[in-house]
Design a binder for these strands. Structure first.
Lengths: 190, 190
DNA sequence: AGTCCGTGAGACAGTCATGCCTCATATGAG
DNA sequence: CTCATATGAGGCATGACTGTCTCACGGACT
């Protein structure tokens, strides 16, 4: 039976490993388990002790992504105030998770097996609900479906993460450029 | 020496194979060469005769994507009329290529090898130029960089392709929903 | 009919990632 | 100090994909 201090350290390590894996896999989705381990600063053996196989790692990454999104949704208080402000808060809260989201976005393997984590469905429902609320309040245009707005927001988050990762955009502009484009579009307001 | 009719048929086949490969790889990026061959209705042997290895296939897919984008850019006449209309024309012309673009978007393997096809750079330059023109003409807002607008357009095309592929959006709405969101955003105009 | 050529099917070895194993080591607990 | 535990290093067997080969079949042209 492991000591409590060990258990505690393992939890920290597990999270660090997950972060490092996400950072690497975002840039190189076909990375070897050995590369992932090296990126996390641990050996392949330890990585395999913590995650039984690549599937388990990706699944854990998915769980982490869902948990972070749920945290962001909670912190953004989607039901408070104007929907546009809620969107801005949400994008800001989602920024640290953008890299992980970008990886999960490209990992369509997950959705291939028909059993997909229902956490995404819950998140989608909340997001769609936010855009629907904005429409019903007269804030948002009604010729774009809430489902599409949610999907587009996800896509813009991924694009933003890529643009920042490749140096095509400044990290400080992340929240602004995504939220402003999603809300206001490219055409100049008069 | 192959007969002319053979050469002609081979060209058609090559394109059909590329289409089928794009259609499959968009949904399952890790598909086997055998699966790709079966999706294209040919045997693995023939697939390997047409494309020497997986790399060659992906490279050919990339070439096809670039060529289609260049065609779309040419047909959209980016320099004619209001920039917003040019964007709408471009999205419409790009629609048939959206699936292929979605695959290439997730194939970050390409950009890992530092030698990336400069066709993308040319396309980027044209697209960025379009948004810059819109800004200079006072059509587009200037607080969003042309580079980001181009990146966002690419991301929205991919998101749209996914939404259509998963049945979350109607194919008929593709052009409209992308162009309108990119140009006008979610907030209702007064 | 005869010939050519593309194709499909199958077999083959080579390569690589994976998962599991053992062993030596260092660090922390008692 | 002694011991336990997690770790790193390395080896090994398995499985999957790949690239290439051979052979037989069928269609097209002469």
């Amino acid at each position: 039976m492991p000591h409590m201090s060990y258990g505690c350290l393992m939890a920290v390590d597990r999270d660090q490993v997950l972060r490092a894996a996400a950072g690497l896999l975002m840039r190189k989705a076909a990375a070897t388990m050995d590369e992932v381990a090296r990126a996390a600063g641990i050996s392949r053996a330890t990585l395999n002790r913590q995650f039984a196989g690549r599937d388990a790692l990706v699944r854990a990454l998915e769980e982490l992504g869902i948990a972070e999104c749920e945290d962001a949704l909670a912190k953004a208080r989607l039901d408070d105030g104007p929907a546009a402000d809620a969107v801005r808060r949400l994008v800001r809260e989602l920024e640290p998770s953008a890299g992980l989201l970008a990886f999960l976005y490209s990992e369509n393997q997950l959705f291939e097996g028909d059993e997909q984590n229902d956490g995404w469905a819950r998140l989608d429902a909340n997001l769609v609900g936010l855009f629907r609320r904005g429409q019903q309040a007269g804030e948002f245009r009604i010729d774009l479906s809430p489902v599409w707005l949610a999907e587009a927001m996800y896509g813009l988050l991924v694009s933003g993460a890529w643009a920042v990762a490749e140096g095509r955009a400044a990290r400080n502009d992340f929240t602004q450029m995504i939220a402003e484009l999603l809300l206001g579009g490219a055409v100049r307001r008069d």
